[in-house]
Design a binder for these strands. Structure first.
Lengths: 157, 157
DNA sequence: GCGATGATGACAACTCAGATGTCATGATGA
DNA sequence: TCATCATGACATCTGAGTTGTCATCATCGC
């Protein structure tokens, strides 16, 4: 039986997707709380951590770009960036594409701190990594991305 | 190459798990917002919706059980349950196992409302369901469950 | 059986992540 | 050149969810 067809199998998949959402809530809250209690070690808040992680992963970005990527309001991200900038973890550099909105990028210190955070978190994830296959994680990423895209139109600003 | 071994492959998996977490944040916020704007149709709040959905899925439960399951504080869940009870969507029935903490279960009306919510949400998920295979969703559920268990110790109360 | 321990429910107070509103500025595009 | 739109700055607000406290009652060890 091909699972990608519509019909009974598709209905089955839809059912299970509900379960995925049911897992996202608790997972988000637990992760939030975990980060909340760990990240002060680096003198960060959850919000500034998110900014550092994004810049670390995707390179320099503008504030509105980050807001859209994280489904957060532009103004909130701005506050987090300002906070990070006050601690010299990030800095604004001129944006060749748009003169008014500067690119935000990690400073040397920022990179160091971001790496420390990532390393700590990966150490924790390593406990569970062995149980899961690469294929499973890939599938998970695909499912979550698809769901995210489904909710793309739900936006603000 | 077996991916479940430790070594390079395991490290790779750990890396990708970070990506999973990066997806959970935006997904949670978007879903929250979507539910927020849809669920007033049934005259519910996000919290009461969560209670109804849990009872619908798992049958009667006590308040503390629901709190643990959703990683929410007992008191908060209690408030949501009280709210739902005020609208006669749920009711307390004696708990044979523990005399002091009664079981909460859906009323007839509650069941109707919960079904309406589920149906609407499944209709939306159906748009995406066809793209994904049953195996992928299963893998996703497994990954998320594993991550949730990893954070089990992070708790409150 | 009886006291210690510990859940539970009820209620009050608080916090803070994140949204919303508004304005001035300057970039962009027809 | 003018209208439009995106950005940054700042101020205010909201409400989901927590924390604190207390009385009650169930459970369990002795």
């Amino acid at each position: 039986m091909r699972e990608t067809e519509h019909g009974p199998a598709a209905a089955e998949v839809t059912d299970r997707l509900t379960e995925v959402f049911d897992l996202v809530g608790p997972l988000y809250r637990r992760a939030q709380r975990k980060v909340e209690q760990d990240v002060p070690l680096e003198g960060l808040s959850v919000g500034t951590r998110a900014v550092l992680m994004m810049l670390r992963e995707h390179g320099p970005m503008t504030v509105p770009q980050m807001g859209r990527a994280q489904a957060l309001s532009r103004q909130f991200v701005q506050r987090m960036v300002n906070e990070a900038a006050a601690r010299h973890l990030v800095e604004a550099v001129p944006n060749p594409a748009h003169k008014r909105s500067s690119l935000i990028r990690l400073t040397g210190v920022g990179e160091t701190v971001a790496t420390a955070v990532v390393d700590r978190e990966r150490a924790m994830l390593r406990q569970v990594g062995g149980d899961l296959t690469d294929a499973e994680v890939t599938a998970c990423l695909r499912v979550l991305s698809r769901l995210l895209r489904l909710l793309d139109d739900v936006d603000m600003d």
